[in-house]
Design a protein around this nucleic acid. Structure first.
Lengths: 196, 196
DNA sequence: TTGCTAAACGGAACGGTGTTCCGTATCGTT
DNA sequence: AACGATACGGAACACCGTTCCGTTTAGCAA
């Protein structure tokens, strides 16, 4: 994860200072452009914002998806880490699940077009897709299991499927005042309740 | 809707025979290519399949979205018309709503990428978006009202919002065996039930 | 049958993507 | 100061939807 030092094996010469600087600049620029124009903003815009050539972007981030991952990695990780915490601090697993899903929805909805790009079957966003799934599905699974064990919800839905569904519901949620993803997700979670 | 004869006003010379023929050929070719490669297939592929130049496509269908509308218009209309019928033949409005939604989901899921394109905020698909909405929202509204009046479901959800939600849930449902849009939509509809 | 003209055709060309490639500039070390 | 590895910039490529216009043809009239 870190630049410069390699924990195992022979020592690897650390990156050049300008390279490390550019990577930071690029990350900041991308974040700014994503806020302004959405995650589908042209790579050239990001290069311009950073005052850097196109080659530089692609050397640091082999593909657009990798850049997007890098920009949002911290927030995805934070969401993943919030899972166990919520489970511990809430009265019921179902409440924890609801709050965690809300966290995820808020994250997606506030990033223009992230949800859309996340679920486009366009190859090349595979790595982005995979990263979100790898990081969040296990957490969701844990919450789902806990809620199922406590008898609050039906137990026949996979975490993967729920995450995809919730992600899908968030598509286009910004840029359309008549569409409230949060409400629909709540409905979906409500539909999960076991008809006791 | 018809080619050639204009019901009102002065007579308009009917289209040339080759033009009418090409339009048919194009519609068939597009349908075939959409099945083979999905609705996002390049326009050039459709032109090649039809054995026709690019100009010909764009003269008949000013934009890709118009071509997609033309290909699926019949099925969308059929879905719209099924609404009142289902309401009349089902025991409860809620059952009718469920069946109608299933019809819509089946339609979307079986067309590669239609749902995705339908909800992409890409301008240029606005007309496609608008056509689906104009045709289907009123029908959904009628079903929703009936079910709300009979007290089966909560009444605080707009037809527009439900249609968008269902459409979103269908995105990527083909090409992913681990994701079953039908089930999630059922969950959503279940969540709609009034907690009596 | 033969002209003639409006209608329709084909496909090169345009503007905009993401991505690759390579000559050039710079860093960090000797 | 010199030099090689590293990183840079941006022209070039492949592909997209769409536009434009010179060429062909259908259909009618003489």
């Amino acid at each position: 994860m870190n630049d410069g030092d390699e924990g195992a094996g022979r020592a690897v010469r650390s990156k050049r200072a300008d390279a490390r600087r550019n990577k930071e600049t690029l990350l900041d620029a991308a974040a700014a452009v994503f806020v302004r124009s959405g995650v589908e903003a042209p790579v050239r815009d990001i290069a311009a914002e950073a005052g850097v050539g196109l080659g530089t972007i692609y050397r640091h981030f082999p593909t657009r998806a990798d850049l997007i991952i890098a920009v949002y990695r911290h927030q995805v990780d934070a969401c993943a880490e919030a899972g166990p915490t919520l489970l511990a601090t809430n009265a019921t697993p179902h409440a924890a699940l609801g709050q965690w899903i809300n966290l995820f929805v808020d994250f997606l909805v506030t990033k223009h077009g992230l949800a859309a790009v996340l679920h486009s079957d366009d190859a090349g966003f595979d790595t982005l897709h995979a990263y979100f799934l790898d990081r969040l599905v296990p957490v969701c699974d844990q919450l789902l299991d806990a809620a199922a064990d406590s008898g609050e919800i039906r137990s026949d839905l996979e975490a993967y499927e729920l995450m995809r569904g919730v992600g899908n519901l968030c598509i286009g949620a910004d840029s359309d005042p008549r569409y409230d993803a949060r409400r629909l997700v709540e409905l979906l979670i409500a539909g999960l309740r076991r008809p006791h």
